[in-house]
């Protein structure tokens, strides 16, 4: 598919920087993440490009490793919510009245909890780990996506072209795969891209609260927390993870907008 949306290109570029940074850590980091020989809270300079944190670790190294966690959290949450949310949503949209009502109530209850609180409950029930955090965020994403899917499915099913397909003898499975999913997919894709960005943000929040990936994993959220006390003396330690997090979320948002532009046939020239 040719890229005709500047938003999509810009979003992909921003996200690519973060992903590249995360991938690079598997082969090379400026310093060993556990290397504390650099002196504490050094300002940015030749030895340490972004300076060091209060334990004397190289900040750039920590940031790069943090990118790994952020990317894994984004992808993980979408990997959980991407299939689970639409599956539940389509089921509710097609199901008999009582099952639809029951699922709607469950989803409403899940959504009534703030994502973070939901995640804290899951993390509290299990041990603090990146997997638990991702599961929790993924479940929250699923609930949002499922409710959106349910509404979208119902709206598509009420369309005349579905009735028309039914009258020509199209079976339910073919209606769902042939008409419903293609018609709701653009909206779902946009939402999933947004959710991927929000998932990174949620992981940072959990880490900030000490419920995300446990040390010694570097996480942007925990870096923010640790640098909070020294924000006036070494602002880079706060600004850098914040800026990268913003980059990832903005990138995800731009990708979402780009997908929307690409998916709309009225914006797509017919060949």
């Amino acid at each position: 598919m040719r890229v005709r949306s500047p938003a999509l290109a810009a979003g992909c570029a921003l996200v690519a920087v973060i992903v590249a940074m995360a991938l690079l850590t598997f082969f090379w980091t400026p310093y060993d993440p556990a290397d504390t020989t650099g002196g504490r809270l050094e300002p940015p300079g030749a030895g340490h490009l972004l300076g060091t944190d209060r334990l004397g670790r190289d900040l750039l190294t920590q940031l790069m490793l943090g990118a790994r966690v952020a990317v894994v959290a984004s992808l993980g949450a979408v990997a959980v919510g991407g299939p689970l949310g639409p599956a539940v949503g389509v089921l509710a949209g097609l199901a008999a009245r009582w099952l639809d009502d029951a699922l709607a109530v469950v989803l409403d209850i899940l959504l009534a909890f703030p994502t973070l609180l939901l995640a804290m409950l899951v993390v509290a029930a299990k041990q603090t780990s990146l997997a638990a955090a991702i599961t929790a965020i993924g479940l929250a994403v699923s609930a949002v996506v499922a409710r959106l899917t349910r509404v979208l499915v119902k709206r598509v099913l009420a369309q005349d072209y579905i009735t028309a397909a039914r009258t020509s003898g199209t079976s339910w499975p073919r209606i769902v795969t042939g008409h419903v999913l293609p018609n709701i997919w653009p909206t779902l894709a946009v939402n999933l891209a947004l959710q991927a960005g929000l998932a990174a943000l949620a992981e940072a929040s959990l880490s900030y609260l000490g419920l995300g990936a446990p040390p010694p994993n570097a996480s942007w959220g925990r870096m923010l927390k640790e640098a909070e006390a020294t924000v006036l003396t070494s602002p880079v330690a706060v600004l850098a993870p914040g800026a990268l997090l913003a980059m990832l979320v903005i990138g995800a948002n731009l990708i979402a907008q780009g997908i929307r532009e690409q998916a709309d046939p009225t914006l797509r020239r017919s060949r």
Partner: peptide
């Protein structure tokens, strides 16, 4: 439902009033 799916189309097909909404907008 399954028997009806086989019957529809073969025995009867329908043309609706509103051509605007009777075609899937994403399909050529």
């Amino acid at each position: 439902g399954r028997r009806l799916d086989r019957l529809r189309g073969r025995a009867a097909a329908v043309v609706f009033q509103e051509p605007l909404t009777a075609l899937d907008p994403l399909k050529r």
